[in-house]
Write a protein that binds this DNA or RNA. Structure first.
Lengths: 161, 161
DNA sequence: CTTAATGCAAATTATTTGCACAAGC
DNA sequence: GCTTGTGCAAATAATTTGCATTAAG
């Protein structure tokens, strides 16, 4: 268990989640596979080296880690979600997906530059892209300003239906 | 049937697909709901006003329309794919998804500018983003240059396992 | 000890597929 | 008429959920 453990423990505590062995193991899998985008199944298989984990536990843990911002889910369109550990250094980045081999690679995203040009330099022949921003629309921004609930277990928000 | 029909017919012909009534109806649904991001089910329901369609047909048609570039699929992470008609004016754009109300909106993307700044002006409070580029990695670019198969029904490529 | 987490198996849900029939070209 | 497309129902496959048991704080 390396440095990451501190971050995970702190975050989990902060949000009233317990630090269980399986959660540690799953985080460990991410650390052992840096810069990788793993499916739930892959994470479970990697975890099996240390302990048997139920797939449901993996999904539940991933949901929590995503919720507290340590993990990010990425959908490349093949019907299976992938997860990457972002942890402390969540520097903005984007993904390159090869339409032929399915290869997935993350690169740093210089927000104010011409990204496509940058990628052309890296030899990636771009055919298409998808840019999605998540946030709050004007109406909801106001709503939240008045409500102010940011916790996951306290304010009983049930939006997004 | 408006102007869009020409585009669809031409594209379908071009790729050796037949122009069926249900394909016309589905395209019509997109035209009747401009700038919307519809699920397969929503498309089917809207189509029902004109004719009963099997959901499988909707999915198959969407796959074709996506293949020939008239329709784009967008995954906002709720487990259901949405589809938008891009047709002739496939100007680059990105999507805003509200984390609270789930609202989804497309806006034009000025590739060489600071997109986040632009959005802040529009009053959208960005918390996160996802930028994915689809294309060919250096290796596959070479491979394709030699192989040259771009058709969907001729070269029997079966890559992307 | 009290409450939250796990594991299993069953349930759910979006999407795909096989096959007989109908329709496009 | 030959071949592709459609509809239905059954099959897949990823993810979720109920519930009894176990472990964290």
């Amino acid at each position: 268990m390396g440095e990451w453990a501190k971050e995970v423990k702190a975050k989990l505590r902060e949000e009233n989640y317990r630090l269980t062995e399986q959660r540690e193991i799953i985080c460990d899998v991410f650390v052992r596979h840096p810069n990788r985008h793993l499916t739930a199944e892959e994470i479970r298989n990697a975890a099996l080296e240390q302990k048997h984990l139920g797939l449901a536990t993996v999904y539940r843990t991933l949901a929590i880690l995503e919720d507290i911002g340590l993990v990010k889910r990425i959908d490349i369109g093949d019907g299976t979600s992938r997860y990457e550990y972002v942890g402390a250094d969540s520097s903005p980045h984007c993904h390159l997906i090869c339409l032929r081999c399915g290869g997935l690679r993350g690169i740093h995203w210089p927000a104010t530059e011409d990204v496509e040009a940058l990628l052309r330099i890296e030899g990636f022949d771009i055919k298409d892209h998808s840019l999605i921003f998540y946030g709050y629309c004007p109406d909801c921004t106001e709503f939240i300003a008045h409500d102010g609930s940011e916790t996951h277990r306290g304010g009983d928000e049930d939006a997004k239906g």
